[in-house]
Design a protein around this nucleic acid. Structure first.
Lengths: 339, 339
DNA sequence: TCAGACTGAGGTAGCGTTTCCTCAAGCTGA
DNA sequence: TCAGCTTGAGGAAACGCTACCTCAGTCTGA
C-alpha cells in the first residue's frame, strides 16, 4: 500500500504546509505552537503514517531512548530472565527499548560492555547481578545513570534494588508457627551465598521472636534435590520429632519432600515443608505442592527501571539499597486445605 | 584523565593531519588509502581513545549494526534464553548488538514490535518462536532480513532454524537398542506439541528400523513429573516386562524414574530411562542421572545469527528449514558405567 | 612518449532530527 | 499611541558520520 520508504518529518511538514521546525514541535508536544497548527501536522503525520526516525532523533538530541541492560551472568536464567522481562514491560511504558549484553562472568567485561553501550548512546544502564559476590560498580566510569539489581555493588552510593530475603524467611517462619509448628529445621544452599545468609538470618530472627529455636542447626549444602534428600534423612535421624522443615529453595524442598515421605511421615500432617522461589517446575510438582515465597522478580526489574527512568529524566535519586519483599504462596505442603 | 567528552572523527583527522574522509576510510578499513596514512590515523585515534559514534554511523550509512530479537514467548526461559545467549555470542563476533523485545504471546504484537524496531533502524530480525503453533511470518511486512528460530512459520520460504527432534529421538532409540533393550515404552508431553510429534515419529521410525514395536503405545500427557509418575505406573502395570522407557523430557523422566524405583525395579538394570532436553536440574538430579538429548540451543541461536548476518551482508540465502541435531548425553539411567 | 588506467587523498552533500535564534504580528498597559 | 511583552512560525546550524565525486599524481603498455 503506502510508499515503501518510511516517510520523513519533512514530508509531513510539506503536506501540512508548515515548516520542518513547526512539524517537529507538533510531533514532540513542544510549546510555542497553536493548537490548530498542531492538529494539522498530526493529521498529516497520520496520513503518511509517519513514525520518527529514532536514530536521527538520538543523534540530534543526544538522547537515544535506549538503555543498556548488562547481565552479569545470564546463565542463571531462572533469576535473570524474569527480572529482564519485568524491566522490559516497564521500559515499554516509558517508550524506551533495551540493548542487552551479557558479561558471561568475566568481570572486566562489564566495563567493556558499558563502553560499547555508550558508543550506542544509551541513556542509562541497568546492571543485573548474580547476587553472589559484589557486582563491580561501573557508575564512576560509565558516567551515565546506572541502576543495579539483584546484587550489592562495590560502591555503597549506587542505587541498588534487592530482593528482601530476610523478610521472606521471616514470613515463612511466621506462617509455620501460625499453622502450629514449633520444631522447625532448615535445609538450604551453600553458605557463601548472600541469599542463603539472609534467609538464615531471617529464620533465626523470626524464631527468636516466637521464643523458638532451630532444630538441628542450619544444614548448608547445594542447590540439589539429591543432596537435599540426603540432608533431610540426616535431619530426620537427628531430630525425629521435628514438625517442619523450611528449605532454602524449591529445588531443595523437592528433595526434602521425597525423603520425608520415604521416611513414612505425612506432609503436611507430620512434617510441614516450605520452599523458596516459587519455581513452579518444583513447587507445583511435589505431592503436596509447596508453600513457598515468590520473589516477585518481575516487579523488581520494573522498579529498577522506574528509578533508572527517573534518573535519566534528571531526578537526583539518593543512593542506597531498596529492598523488595516477596510474597508468601501457601500450598498443600503446610496447609492441608490449600490448593 | 582524557577529556570528558568522546572524541570525534574530525578531531582524529585533525590530529593526524588528514581530511575527515581519509580518517573515515582508515577507521573503516576501506581501500583507496595508503598503509602509512592509515597507520598515522589509527595512531591518532588511539591517542584520543577514539571510538566511533555508532548512532551517527548508523544514520549516515543506513545500517545500524543492530539487530532486533523478537521473543514470541519469553516465559519459556528454559528454551528461549539459551538461544538468545548463543545468538548474542555470535553477534559479538560480527560486532553487532541486539535490541530484545518480547511479544508476550500477543500475536499482533509481533508486527508492532517489528515496526518499532524498524524505527530504530535495525539491520535484521531474529524471531524466536515457541515451537508450538506456527509463528506468524513477518518477513513480508518487515522488509528487512529475518531469520526464524525454534518454530515453523506461516511462510515456507522463510529461513527457519529448528532443532531436529526426529533425529534426537532416533538417537535415543539406537542407544537403547545398543544397550540391549527391546521392549521400549514412550511417555511424553501434550500431543499437540510439534516437538512431541517429531520425537514420536523419530522413535517409531527407529524402532521399525530395528524391527521393534513400541510397548504400550504412546502415552501423551503433560510436562509434569507428577503426571509422568502416574503414567509410568500405568505403563508398568500394562506391560510389566518392559525394559526401557523413553521420555519426552527430562522433567517427565524425573517423575518416571521415581515411579520405576517405587515399583521395586532398578534403573538401569531392570528398566532403562531416557529424558530429553538435558535440563540439568532434572537430568543430573535423578538417581541415577539421566541419559538425555542436549538440543544445543546455543548453537542453534548462533547458527541463526550467522544466516542473518549473511543476509544482511547481501547474500541471497535460499529459504527453507535448517535442522540442527542434538547430542546424546549418556548417563547412568541407561548405562551403569556412565557418570 | 603519451593516452588511459589506477591510486591516494580531499571536498561536499547529504542522513532526519532537534535546538537556537530571529522575526513578524498581536496584545498589554501606561 | 507606542514601548515592551508574548506568541506562533520559520531559517539555519549542528549532530558525526559515510557515500559519491573530483582531482592530481603515478604507473602501464603500445
Amino acid at each position: 500500500m503506502q510508499a515503501d520508504r518510511q516517510s520523513t518529518l519533512t514530508e509531513v511538514a510539506q503536506l501540512a504546509g508548515v515548516s520542518l521546525t513547526t512539524a517537529s514541535k507538533a510531533i514532540n508536544g513542544r510549546d510555542r505552537i497553536s493548537e490548530v497548527t498542531r492538529k494539522r501536522v498530526l493529521r498529516a503525520a497520520r496520513e503518511l503514517s509517519y513514525s520518527p526516525n529514532l536514530v536521527a532523533r538520538s543523534l540530534a538530541s543526544g538522547r537515544s531512548s535506549t538503555i543498556g541492560v548488562l547481565l552479569r551472568d545470564p546463565m542463571i536464567h531462572r533469576i535473570a530472565m524474569p527480572i529482564v522481562i519485568g524491566a522490559e514491560s516497564m521500559l515499554e511504558q516509558w517508550q524506551l527499548s533495551a540493548i542487552i549484553a551479557d558479561a558471561r562472568e568475566v568481570v572486566d567485561r562489564l566495563a567493556d560492555l558499558a563502553a560499547m553501550l555508550r558508543q550506542r548512546n544509551v541513556d542509562g544502564l541497568l546492571i543485573v547481578g548474580d547476587n553472589q559476590g559484589l557486582t563491580p560498580s561501573i557508575s564512576a566510569s560509565a558516567k551515565i545513570p546506572s541502576v543495579y539489581v539483584h546484587g550489592r555493588t562495590t560502591n555503597p552510593r549506587d542505587v541498588v534494588h534487592l530482593v528482601d530475603d530476610f523478610a521472606g524467611a521471616v514470613a515463612v517462619v511466621n506462617h509455620l508457627v501460625e499453622v502450629g509448628r514449633a520444631r522447625i529445621a532448615h535445609i538450604t544452599g551453600p553458605e557463601y551465598s548472600p541469599a542463603v545468609q539472609q534467609r538464615v538470618l531471617g529464620i533465626g530472627h523470626a524464631l527468636e521472636e516466637h521464643g523458638l529455636q532451630l532444630v538441628g542447626g542450619v544444614r548448608y549444602g547445594q542447590w540439589s534435590q539429591r543432596w537435599a534428600s540426603q540432608a533431610a534423612r540426616d535431619v530426620l535421624a537427628d531430630a525425629p520429632d521435628l514438625d517442619a522443615i523450611a528449605c532454602g529453595s524449591d529445588q531443595i524442598a523437592a528433595g526434602v519432600v521425597e525423603a520425608v515421605v520415604a521416611s513414612g511421615r505425612k506432609v503436611p500432617d507430620d512434617v510441614a515443608v516450605t520452599g523458596y522461589d516459587n519455581w513452579t517446575v518444583f513447587a507445583e510438582e511435589t505431592e503436596p505442592a509447596l508453600t513457598t515465597v515468590d520473589m516477585n522478580l518481575e516487579k523488581l526489574g520494573a522498579a529498577a527501571v522506574n528509578d533508572l527512568f527517573a534518573m535519566i529524566s534528571g531526578t537526583r535519586l539518593g543512593g542506597g539499597t531498596r529492598h523488595h519483599e516477596g510474597t508468601l504462596v501457601v500450598r498443600g505442603s503446610t496447609d492441608r486445605h490449600a490448593p
